[in-house]
């Protein structure tokens, strides 16, 4: 039995280029937890849609032929990081999945794994430190810059362990940053004060990204020779590849700050209305 060519091509595209059991396990685990938790807590459709889109986005850019293109074209690599670091973690964090994922977790794991981790003061301090908005913003931008240092980028594209570290780092750091933006509520502190602070950080992280993206997009020589060395698969010239990659680092990456800012302003407004009418039931953030 043979499949029609289009279907065959689509199936071939969806198969991983570099199969990673870790990515599969983490994504499947998150999906299972979310599904269980969502049914138990009777979560909303909207938040589920955001979460599933985010999770699917991460999986697709890591575990399909997309990754092959990302290894051999600069702009596809930038697109992969845009999804891993900006879009997918944004969607996951904005869907406020903590309560749902928690509800999906078996009680035993809650008691024996999650609770001790929460009580661990060292971890608590570390988490609080990296979730401090300005620190989180600096790490967010710093990681983008670090992996785009040409010599670092060179080895990251050649070494499999380094490549995986880069992508995992981007995904995890992206989740931490957007988590901080949408869900942070410092213990004891009023939520109100934080909205402005978080908006400020979203605003501040835009400029270094714009500067870097513009520098790459407008550069008139090939900054990342590794793609020529290892073969570009798409029939475009190195400078066009680089210009598109730079634009992706510049415009959509910075736009995510604007979208995030709009969400925050909306929530801020909603919350201040709730403060004015304290009798209405509080919906909103998970934690």
């Amino acid at each position: 039995m043979t499949l029609p060519p289009l279907l065959e091509q689509s199936v071939a595209f969806l198969l991983p280029y570099d199969f990673s059991p870790t990515v599969l396990l983490v994504c499947a685990g998150a999906a299972l937890l979310y599904h269980r938790g969502w049914r138990r807590t009777r979560g909303g459709w909207g938040q589920a849609l955001l979460f599933w889109l985010g999770l699917l986005g991460m999986y697709v850019v890591l575990q399909t032929q997309f990754d092959y293109y990302a290894q051999h074209s600069f702009f596809m690599h930038r697109l992969q990081h845009l999804v891993l670091h900006h879009v997918a973690p944004f969607l996951i964090a904005v869907s406020a999945p903590a309560a749902i994922l928690g509800a999906g977790l078996p009680d035993r794991i809650h008691r024996h794994v999650v609770a001790p981790l929460r009580r661990n003061r060292l971890l608590g301090h570390l988490y609080a430190a990296i979730q401090e908005p300005l620190v989180a913003g600096a790490i967010f931008v710093g990681l983008i810059y670090f992996w785009l240092i040409p010599s670092v980028h060179f080895y990251a594209m050649l070494s499999v362990p380094l490549y995986n570290t880069m992508n995992w780092g981007m995904a995890i750091e992206g989740l931490l940053f957007w988590w901080m933006i949408f869900n942070l509520r410092a213990p004891g502190a009023s939520d109100m004060r934080h909205y402005g602070y978080r908006l400020l950080v979203l605003f501040l992280v835009m400029f270094p990204q714009i500067a870097l993206g513009a520098y790459i997009a407008l550069s008139n020589h090939d900054l990342f020779g590794i793609y020529a060395a290892c073969g570009r698969i798409l029939p475009i010239t190195p400078l066009i590849d680089q210009a598109i990659g730079g634009l992706l680092t510049w415009v959509p990456a910075a736009m995510m700050s604007v979208v995030g800012g709009l969400v925050l302003v909306y929530r801020w407004k909603r919350q201040s209305q709730q403060v004015e009418q304290p009798l209405s039931p509080t919906l909103g953030c998970a934690r």
Binding site: D18, Q71, H72, M157, V160, C230, G231, R232, I233
Partner: peptide, 12 residues
């Protein structure tokens, strides 16, 4: 071999 050395080739 190409995958092992992270190089690519494609036909136009």
């Amino acid at each position: 071999v190409a995958k092992r050395y992270r190089v690519a080739f494609s036909y136009e």
